[in-house]
């Protein structure tokens, strides 16, 4: 199959393609892929190199922190499953999260421009409850909570919202953000796909440099000198989230920064840790870290106590039994250090 196939498809497509290429997750898009006659094997073999290149571009853009740009709608739809295959074969959770983040951001920007009817249709496909009331969109609070929990912005906290009988009213722009967040979650939940190892090796050959790039990035991000083995479970939990590229809540960011600062980790190293965040923004992170460690505000914040960590939901140990009943994560770190290096048990 080659260029003629693509041309043939182009001629047989109705106008709807101009909507669905932006949203390759739509049922219509799936139908299109099915009708294209291109098989999973065709994609794996990479016999249609333009499609594979395009899929690969999607992944690269995410890795480089860019929103994917496109000019060829026909290719885009087909490149979507290819990107999924590539991501599944590389099988790096951090990369998948990053991809999900940028892909959802792209969709968010597109959705903002859409007509109400189209938004209603997509919300229905994603199972987001919606009541239209004039210009306002209303969604049910559980759907709101579920899809807004990773957005780090006071504006999104429930307490600043108008909620009546369970329904929250939102501007269009915010409602489509919820759709985008839902999409992000769906990507994260579906990937990696279960792909045969042999099949994967065919794909991997073509994306080797992505993997190299990913590894370099990983190495840069390891923290040195400090013995992270001895961190208390709460801090370990947060760090493992950063390693996986899972977005942190405000409280988690705050707790991690205050903790690391207290035990002497340098500012730059703290910032490095946040690099893996899907929404990493260097300037913003530096500003926030500065603020917390007191370089800009003059106030150095202390690491939250264990009971506060419990309220935040960061502490997951039961009745402190794993933590020698200490009152602060710093103390637990010191106990662990002592045990390890002085042999005290």
């Amino acid at each position: 199959m080659g260029k003629e196939t693509i041309d043939h498809l182009r001629s047989s497509i109705d106008t709807d393609i101009y909507t669905i290429y932006k949203y390759p997750f739509l049922d219509d898009a799936r139908k299109y892929i099915r009708d294209s006659g291109i098989s999973f094997n065709d994609l794996l073999e990479g016999s249609i190199s333009t499609i594979v290149d395009c899929g690969r571009k999607r992944v690269e853009d995410a890795l480089n922190g860019k929103i994917h740009e496109y000019d060829n709608p026909y290719l885009e739809i087909l490149s979507y499953p290819v990107a999924n295959i590539i991501l599944s074969c590389i099988n790096d959770i951090g990369l998948i999260k990053r991809y999900a983040y940028f892909e959802s951001k792209r969709v968010y920007e597109e959705l903002k421009k859409e007509e109400n009817n189209f938004i209603i249709k997509i919300a229905a496909q994603f199972g987001l409850r919606l009541k239209k009331d004039g210009e306002k969109y209303e969604t049910y609070f559980t759907d709101y909570l579920n899809n807004s929990r990773r957005i780090n912005d006071q504006k999104w906290s429930l307490v600043n919202k108008k909620i009546s009988k369970g329904w929250i009213s939102l501007e269009k722009e915010d409602f489509v953000r919820l759709i985008a967040e839902k999409y992000r979650e769906i990507i994260e939940d579906t990937l990696p796909l279960n792909i045969d190892k042999e099949d994967c090796s065919k794909i991997i050959n073509r994306v080797g440099d992505i993997i190299t790039c990913l590894k370099e990035k990983d190495n840069r991000e390891k923290i040195s000198k400090i013995d992270s083995d001895c961190f208390p479970p709460c801090i370990k939990g947060i760090i493992s989230k950063t390693e996986k590229g899972i977005n942190l809540s405000h409280h988690e960011r705050f707790s991690l920064t205050t903790f690391l600062h207290k035990i002497g980790v340098k500012k730059d190293e703290i910032i490095q840790l946040f690099r893996n965040m899907p929404d990493f923004d260097f300037e913003m992170t530096r500003y926030q870290v500065d603020n917390i460690i007191g370089e800009s505000s003059g106030t150095t914040y202390r690491c939250p106590s264990c009971s506060t960590m419990k309220t935040y939901g960061i502490c997951t140990t039961e009745r402190n039994k794993d933590c020698n009943n200490v009152s602060n994560p710093i103390k637990k770190y010191k106990i662990n250090l002592d045990r390890k290096y002085k042999g005290i048990v």
């Binding site: 049910y140 559980t142 909570l145 579920n146 929990r149 006071q154 906290s157 429930l158 307490v159 600043n160 909620i163 369970g166 809540s249 935040y312 939901g313």
Partner: peptide, 27 residues
């Protein structure tokens, strides 16, 4: 039925709402 599946962090958001701890006059 609508609340049974709520996760821990979603329940915490409800608590934050009910206790309005983060509210001040500017909100």
């Amino acid at each position: 039925r609508s609340v049974l599946k709520l996760k821990s962090e979603e329940r915490r958001e409800m608590i934050d709402y009910l206790s309005a701890n983060s509210l001040n006059i500017d909100n």
